[in-house]
């Protein structure tokens, strides 16, 4: 299964919120939607979920316009919320029935998920007796219980403690392994980096960069070197302003162009006692800051 968004545009009043958003996600892979606050992540997801229509653009499943009755989508909205005064099992059942399940399958699936997320003992409790993190786990069940083909999780890790975050991680990996499309949005780069094969970074309603995460990293301009050496002070004074000390105690050397890479490496290893020297590979965080942050600077 392939989910595609093509040329989505949306404006609220005179404010253009999304400008020509296109990306695609495939079965068995996780897709990460990144961006700063207000970049348009939630709006994109809401359009995908048909909460409101796009002004322009198409949403396709396997090349055909999406049919929401046919395509099962599980959704964890950014605005978390269920019925605070209702028993947990009752409301989970209600949402599963709304998604078209029959009563028996729904009850079975809910029991499975309550057990999987270690929430079985709360089945008969009212939702508002639970902590925020546990409420979020219950809400996650509404997104997964009906076994949807596409799982859309808007900021799934916010508000979870490390143990619960790990549990969610496992669950997400299982869903990916089952061949589902998992679409994420998050600020937490470490999670995206861990799960997502493909990413799109949104900035001010436009896609700043998108594609396979490894390719993006690889294509990142290879014009920086990381050097670990006992003689770091000498290197620092030798190279001057193009060399910086990093938090880890290594040196980061910015080259004028990627072609100088070999020459610089040779020169350093010949001149100094070098423990380690490698081409700098950016983390997703670096890429995010560069694309999401830079564009902000340009516009401001």
């Amino acid at each position: 299964m392939k989910l595609e968004l093509q040329g989505i545009r949306k404006s609220f009043g005179s404010k253009q919120v999304l400008n020509d958003i296109s990306f695609s996600a495939e079965s068995g892979k996780a897709f990460g939607l990144l961006g700063r606050n207000g970049a348009g992540k939630t709006t994109t997801i809401r359009i995908l979920m048909d909460v409101f229509p796009a002004d322009q653009g198409k949403i396709l499943v396997d090349g055909a316009p999406i049919d929401y009755r046919e395509t099962g989508i599980g959704y964890l909205p950014e605005e978390r919320g269920l019925y605070p005064k209702k028993k947990i099992f009752d409301q989970l059942l209600y949402f599963s029935l709304l998604k078209g399940m029959n009563r028996r399958d729904a009850a079975k699936s809910i029991d499975h998920w309550l057990k999987r997320l270690e929430m079985s003992q709360y089945s008969d409790k009212r939702l508002d007796t639970l902590s925020k993190g546990n409420q979020q786990k219950i809400q996650l069940i509404t997104a997964l219980a009906h076994d949807p083909q596409i799982v859309v999780l808007d900021e799934p890790f916010s508000g979870l403690d490390p143990v619960n975050a790990m549990l969610l991680e496992e669950v997400v990996k299982e869903e990916i392994a089952k061949g589902k499309i998992v679409l994420f949005s998050s600020h937490q780069m470490s999670y995206i980096e861990e799960f997502c094969d493909d990413i799109a970074i949104l900035n001010q309603g436009s896609i700043a960069i998108q594609g396979n995460l490894r390719t993006i990293k690889h294509n990142y301009t290879r014009d920086k070197l990381i050097v670990r050496s006992e003689a770091s002070d000498a290197i620092l004074s030798d190279l001057g302003c193009c060399c910086q000390r990093t938090d880890e105690g290594t040196l980061k050397i910015r080259l004028a162009s990627p072609e100088e890479k070999q020459g610089m490496m040779r020169r350093l290893t010949e001149t100094y006692d070098i423990d380690e020297i490698r081409v700098f590979e950016p983390s997703l965080n670096d890429i995010f800051v560069e694309y999401a942050g830079e564009q902000e600077e340009k516009t401001s």
């Binding site: 048909d50 959704y75 978390r80 919320g81 269920l82 019925y83 809400q139």
Partner: peptide, 12 residues
């Protein structure tokens, strides 16, 4: 106000 709405209108 309890924000159950977004889930509801995407379900029904």
């Amino acid at each position: 106000s309890s924000r159950a709405m977004e889930l509801l209108i995407t379900s029904a």
